[in-house]
Design a binder for these strands. Sequence first.
DNA 1: TTGTATGCGTTATCAT
DNA 2: ATGATAACGCATACAA
Lengths: 356, 356
Amino acid sequence: MQANIGDVAQRAQVSASTVSRAFKHPELVAKATRERIARAADELDFAASRSASVFQTGQTFRIALLLNDPSSTWFNAHIYEGLDSVFHPAGYDIAIYPIGTSGDRHAFFEDLPIRRNADAVIIASFDVDSKEIARLHSMNVPIIGINALPEDVFDYSIATDDDYAMRLVTRHLLTLGHKDIAYIDLDPPENADGSLHYSANRRSNGFLAECAEAHIEPAMLHVSNTGQRVDHALTQLFALNHMPTAICCEQDRIAVPLLSRLQRLGYAIPDALSITGFDDSTYAREVGLTTIRQDPHDMGARAARHALDLIAKADNDFETTDETASKTGVSTPPIHESTQIRMMFRMSTGPATSAA
Amino acid sequence: MQANIGDVAQRAQVSASTVSRAFKHPELVAKATRERIARAADELDFAASRSASVFQTGQTFRIALLLNDPSSTWFNAHIYEGLDSVFHPAGYDIAIYPIGTSGDRHAFFEDLPIRRNADAVIIASFDVDSKEIARLHSMNVPIIGINALPEDVFDYSIATDDDYAMRLVTRHLLTLGHKDIAYIDLDPPENADGSLHYSANRRSNGFLAECAEAHIEPAMLHVSNTGQRVDHALTQLFALNHMPTAICCEQDRIAVPLLSRLQRLGYAIPDALSITGFDDSTYAREVGLTTIRQDPHDMGARAARHALDLIAKADNDFETTDETASKTGVSTPPIHESTQIRMMFRMSTGPATSAA
DNA sequence: TTGTATGCGTTATCAT
DNA sequence: ATGATAACGCATACAA
């Protein structure tokens, strides 16, 4: 069927070890031999079995990625893309574990084939239980957090400061003179139980804090995150005593289509109504939505690079562990990065109308 | 460090094979023993090494997914999600191979660790060279096509009939009385050379064919697929002698933001201007875009299910190949499915204005 | 129902 | 610079 390393060895008149070396440590093989081997491999259509070398190496070349929302979400899809842009070239596969409930999460940490089946675990967009993580740590698997809390359980984490970012948005609206503001957030899907926390909470906190400081009482609307989310949002808006002069959305995902619908319904934006989003996701720029920019692709790529470092370090630590231990292992401390926040000012926000 | 099958065997007072069996073929192990093993495994935090069993099995439990566009694209992200929804529970990982140019594609088929490193190859959204595919076939790796041509090189394929679907859209516009129509398509990114064909071509063909039958001469606009795509499209529209009464877009991706921008610019839609898309992707419903519905998640899931069948079959074939061969192997013929096309009629299309 | 023996393809160690 | 050899951890064929 398929040539293996032995066939190549035979054809190139060398031993199997030399063939292996020719691929893994070319510098240790004489140029002539190397070329002979290359030719033989080529002629036989040889490709080293990934499974075999992975097995022998002890590494799995697999990354476990824990996601709450569907992977097709704007944020998650870009996170994945960023991760893969680093991991794939490095020979790693990414396996996505959907975590819808804290039960799922618990099951993952409880049952899961951790140490043997993933070289690193990456957790995106939901908060986590220190005890669960502890088990992973004891297994020497790097844990990486993306927009996840608490920071200190991760070997590396990168996050957007949601609270602060949303405060900026809110201040922008307040500065424009808005006093009559509605906040819209997307409720997590029903199957999610309360114990799975999302960064969403931190955004509304930031908003509320700023409003409180300004002695403003906003209207808080909760929209269920389904196909009908815009209709649901509109329903609640119209149910208010009067239309606010500004709408602050937890996500572009609701802000973008809402902006479009409100315009069609005749609301002059921003003259009569301002609206803000969060993410700078699909079409936010095109529709002119004022929003907070996040770059999940970059976050993913960074996370992946740090993951590779950590994996390499974990391997070394392991080798030197027993007695030699912790002599060289100064064990660089965990890194916790904040993404740089940037606000995108676009046409969807403007001065409050004096006539409410 | 980590318990292996031997440790469990020892603790449960059985042989390693029995432990292995207890997991892979529980029905062959006495209940009492099974429970004893389960307990031992639990106490030791044992999890079978994926690498080792994968290696031993000969399967790779890996799927190669060839993608042209970025994986974060609406279509690709949903394809991936659909695939993963079937593959992940079945224990398979998906590895994405970005194919930007026909060179990439060629390299994949030429160099690549196929047979040994993937149990199936899935090609999404671009057309392929029969000769390249032939090599894979000779290696007994199932090849699956999603919106890819030519059909007959795939062991299973599922596709939207782009030509036909776009004809439907076009007829809808013609029926409404539009005679002055512009077609906008997104040029593939620059780095893509001409030899990589996309389903996009089939859409414009359908459009042109219908126009020809109706003796109508449309304006064909090509927009480069960058961040500026909407501005680029607007520029070209305004450069025409006069505004058309209808704009037919190759993708929602341009139609959705274009619709929004044109509205803001004061065009009454659909009274003065109709616009259509293709995909029914993000926000198409919310902004009221008439479009063709595609369900890439479903396409992916179907493709994955067929892939699993084919993999199972390939394994059997292989075992029975030599002499016994092709006796049982009636070798079910390839299946080529068409997705069911549905048009979503929404507010963005209406009768042509008599006054051009 | 369970145990023994063997092999999967590669790489690392240790000689040479 | 290269070769011989021994693992790596599991799953199967076969024996009992």
